[in-house]
Simulated scan of single mutants.
Amino acid sequence: MLKLVKIGLLFFGNSQLLIQGFISSATKTFTIVNKCDETVWPGISSNAGVVPVEPTGFALQKGESKAIHAPPSWGGRLWGRTHCSKDSNGNFTCATGDCGSGKMECAGAGATPPATLAKFTIGRDGMDFFYVSLVGGYNLPMLVSPTGGGSGRNCSSVGCTVDLKVACPSELKVTSSDGEVVACKSSCVAFGRKEDCCRGEYGSRDTCKPSFYSQVFKTACPRASSYTYDNETSTFACAGADYQIIFCPTSTTKYIVSLKACVF
C-alpha cells in the first residue's frame, strides 16, 4: 500500500517557516479476519526499536475484519485473545492470550502463553519473513496468507488451521471455570524443563530436539513452528505482499489424534 504523509518544518532561527508537502511511504496492510464462532480480541506487539502499530488491541465479532497499517520496516507479533471481559473494577482480562495491560489495548505488552502467534519481520533486505508459532502453546486456529501478488521463496499461506484443543494431552490442557478446554500449553510452558525450552545445555540446534509433545503439534500443523529450532520448516518469505491473518479459517475442522499412535 502507498500512503501519503503530510509533513511540515517550523522555526528556523528567529523566523517562522512553514513548508508543507507530501512524501510517500510504502506501508504494509494486515487485514485481520475473525471466522470463529465467537468474538476474538486481537493483540499486537511491536519489536523494540521500531515504530509501533496502532491500535494494539481491539474486538472482532464473528465475521468482522479490520485493516491495520504497518511501517515499511516493522517487526512484531499478532495473536488472538479469547473469553475476555471486564471485572467490577473495569479491568479487562482474557482467559487466553491476555497481555496483562488491564485494558483492551495491549500497549506494548505481549501475549501470556499459551497463545498461537503470527510473527513478522517486514522489509529486511527487501523481503518479509513470517511464521506462525506454537512454541508457547495454542489457543486458536490461525492462517497467514500473502495477498496482492507477492513473490519469493515460500511465498504462500502458513499456519495452523485445525483445532488442537481436541487433541491436547490432558497434562497440557487449559480449562475455563466451567470445564471447557480453551487452550493447549506447549511442553515448555507446562513443565519448564530445559530440554523442552531449549535452554542451558540444550540451548542449540544440535542439542535441543523435538519432544513428544512438539511432534504432536507438528503432525497436526506441519506449516507452523512447534519448538524453538523448528524455524527451518516453518519460516516463509515474500516480497511485495500485504497479508491477511485469519482466525478459525476453517472453523469446523477438528484434528483428532491417537496419542498411542504418536509414540516416537
Rank of each mutant, 00 (worst) to 15 (best):
K3F: 13
I7H: 13
L9E: 14
G13M: 07
G13L: 14
G13V: 09
Q16A: 08
L17H: 03
L18H: 13
I23E: 15
T27G: 10
K28L: 12
K28R: 05
T29R: 15
T29P: 01
T29E: 14
V33L: 04
N34P: 02
N34R: 00
D37T: 08
D37M: 03
E38N: 08
T39W: 05
I44W: 02
A48S: 14
A48R: 09
V50K: 13
P52Y: 06
P52F: 06
P55D: 10
T56Y: 01
G57S: 02
F58D: 09
A59E: 14
L60F: 03
L60K: 10
K66S: 13
A67D: 15
H69K: 11
H69G: 05
P72F: 01
S73M: 08
G75N: 09
G76D: 12
G76F: 05
R77H: 09
S88Q: 14
S88V: 12
S88L: 11
T93D: 07
C94R: 02
G102W: 03
E105S: 10
C106H: 04
A107Y: 01
P114F: 00
T116M: 03
T116E: 04
L117A: 11
F120A: 02
G123W: 01
L134A: 06
V135M: 02
V135W: 08
G137P: 06
N139R: 05
L143Y: 00
P146C: 13
T147K: 15
G148H: 05
G152Q: 06
R153G: 09
N154A: 08
S156C: 07
V162N: 11
V162P: 00
V162W: 02
K165H: 01
V166T: 10
C168P: 03
P169S: 12
E171M: 00
L172E: 10
V174S: 09
T175F: 05
T175C: 08
D178H: 11
S187N: 14
C188T: 04
A190D: 04
A190V: 06
F191G: 03
G192E: 04
K194Q: 14
D196C: 00
C198M: 09
R199N: 11
R199C: 01
G203Y: 01
K209H: 05
F212I: 06
Y213V: 00
F217I: 00
F217C: 04
T219K: 13
A220V: 09
A220I: 00
A224Q: 03
A224N: 09
Y227H: 02
Y227N: 07
N231W: 00
E232R: 02
S234I: 00
Y243F: 15
Q244A: 11
I245E: 08
I245D: 07
I245Y: 02
I245Q: 06
I246G: 08
F247R: 12
C248D: 08
T250I: 12
T250E: 15
S251I: 03
T253H: 03
V257G: 11
S258Q: 10
K260S: 12
A261G: 11
C262M: 12
C262T: 01
V263D: 15
F264D: 12
